[in-house]
Design a protein around this nucleic acid. Sequence first.
DNA 1: CGGTTCATTGAGCCACATCAAGAAGTGTGG
DNA 2: CCACACTTCTTGATGTGGCTCAATGAACCG
Lengths: 243, 243
Amino acid sequence: MHMAPRNDSCKSCPIRHSAVCAECDADELAILEQVKSYRTYAPGEAIASAGEPLDHLSSLVTGCATMSRTLEDGRRQSVGLLLPADFIGRPGRNVSLYDIEAVSEVTLCRFERLQFEKLVRNTPHIAARLLTMTLDELDAAREMAVTLGRRTAREKIASFLVSLARRQSAATKLSVPKAPVVLHLPLSRHEIADHLGLTIETVSRQLTMLRKTGVIGMVDSRDIAIPDFERLQLEAGEDDGTG
Amino acid sequence: MHMAPRNDSCKSCPIRHSAVCAECDADELAILEQVKSYRTYAPGEAIASAGEPLDHLSSLVTGCATMSRTLEDGRRQSVGLLLPADFIGRPGRNVSLYDIEAVSEVTLCRFERLQFEKLVRNTPHIAARLLTMTLDELDAAREMAVTLGRRTAREKIASFLVSLARRQSAATKLSVPKAPVVLHLPLSRHEIADHLGLTIETVSRQLTMLRKTGVIGMVDSRDIAIPDFERLQLEAGEDDGTG
DNA sequence: CGGTTCATTGAGCCACATCAAGAAGTGTGG
DNA sequence: CCACACTTCTTGATGTGGCTCAATGAACCG
């Protein structure tokens, strides 16, 4: 629970143009500068817990986190993978419905809840951006539901790799990853399993199946080579709705 | 594809206080009155199709619809059950990502897309309400992900009944359904199966299991009696995140 | 009445879970 | 530098929840 970098300028912020502040002009940014604060979390550290108060709203600046629910008997399901620019928390609610856990070292750009809610009310650029981001998350959550409900283990793994590759290349401005060569997995097998509603053993087995059939290559257990992205999409049983 | 009631007054609208217009004042309502139009759909009729243009945004006024995706080989997964007050369509996108299908006779209160987007920009009460509703849908979609990914068939069925009972009693202002006695299922076995990532046979079997163990009673195949709501919640493996 | 659709029930099977055992990496202390 | 513990990943053997296939029943309708 260490405080992080003194307030860096928003101008040099890596998520300046993709986070909730993306549409803000210079004046609005100046206000954000005044009320924001950074905080970092170590890998494995809890950022929020289901049912507990969450009195800051934040943007994830660097690192990776998961959002999950654990049932009484220990079954866990991830409901979202948080990457840079993703927003954490819900304006209008001071309790988290999910556990949010840092997977790698995470830096958040935080706003005190009441202050941020006031900003949302008074800053149309923030409200509009927040709406757009929430709608995008909703699409992603529904896509997840299709995967969890109807895809096979193999398709789930392939889908996961595809969506990860897409998000990674979106961050580097290539909307269609032509040859991302190698994809780094931010999650362990266990975390992937929880994300896809599988067990670690099934995740491991399906990854080796994909490797043995040449769909992917494995540099090491966390780095996946994708020689043919379209073939991977095919394995994912993708149906992007444009049919 | 028949046009529905001439423009009824918003004042007598059944979803006046729960739809996207809920927070509007009299002046704002007057504007909505001018640009809205009603349309009804027969049971089974398509309201939108995945990948096809959707040039109206609407509120569902009466009836019930599903939102789903069908994969090439016919596997179908519902990603949402649309009931009165629910919003259909996404501002800023003119294509639907999902099939939306009337399950019963449906009446929509529709707005032409560009007009509505302008309203969102210029009417904070609408923008704020839309954000709140979108955040609620996001919570629901994530809850769905937990159910699809980690609950057993029996728990899925019980969860579904619980959430249906909650939504039904929310519509009638009781936040905790004390004894809703009998719950009407708006969906067929097939539609329930697609909603829960199961087959019709499993849905049928689990319903009879719940009946045989006394958790529910069946008036007929579409009407379920719930003698003890808490017991049903227990069967659902509910973990509402509050502790 | 037959035809059609929807729900239930049974028998058998299979994809994925569970249980169990290595293997490979990583960090710590001597 | 190695020995050891510990964690993560892989692989194999076996079990099972829910799917598939198939038949029957029940409601509706022309």
